[in-house]
Amino acid sequence: MNASAAAAAPGASGREDIPISERGPASIRTVVSFGFWLFLVSDIIIFSALFAAYAVLSLQTAGGPSGAQLFDLRHVFAETSCLLISSFTCGLCMLAVARRRRTMTYQWATVTFLLGLSFIALELSEFARMIASGATPARSAFLSAFFTLVGTHGIHVTVGLCWLIVMMAQVATLGFRPMVARRMLCFSLFWHALDLVWIGVFTIVYLGARL
């Protein structure tokens, strides 16, 4: 076992020749990201249940306002841009972590945080406008499903923002040790997965309302 590990060490190409059953344990980084990936897949399954509920109920407006009357696509486009660009800057932050550049890490993490915060602010202002015009979650089955789906995504983004603050505190106090780098990797996976879910939200909920 030790011999095979030593043989594998010199080059990545040597690793390919060894059968997968004899390569020994995968690196901690691979195992951690796989475990977190399983969590993300289960999270996406939660969202799929909410998407299914929305798809079933989206026309049941009970005489209340429909999606086409309520949604402002310019607003949604601004939200989408915020989240997409924050996904990109989160990637840049990960590159800075990989290169152990402290200033660059803080810089891109701040940009990511501000973009995520403006996404939440835009979403809350949209909710406030809808509720002020009488389109509350209790108005119709369509609005219940809408607020549950979009609200759950918003809560995820909020949790992600808190997590980012915690990670920056850890970089500040613990530095770039492997443990912190792995946690940053998990955070970036989480953040990209939220953007992935948002693609479904803006396509099915907002653009789908105009069909």
């Binding site: 995968a26 691979t30 796989f34 897949v41 799929s48 249940a49 299914a52 509920a53 798809a55």
Partner: peptide, 24 residues
């Protein structure tokens, strides 16, 4: 390295498809 990731993703897509299209 990402074989397991792809398998988990494929299973996830399968379940998502079952839930969404099955419910509808």
């Amino acid at each position: 390295d990402s074989t397991n990731t792809v398998l988990a993703l494929a299973f996830g897509i399968f379940i998502v498809g079952l839930i969404v299209f099955g419910s509808m």
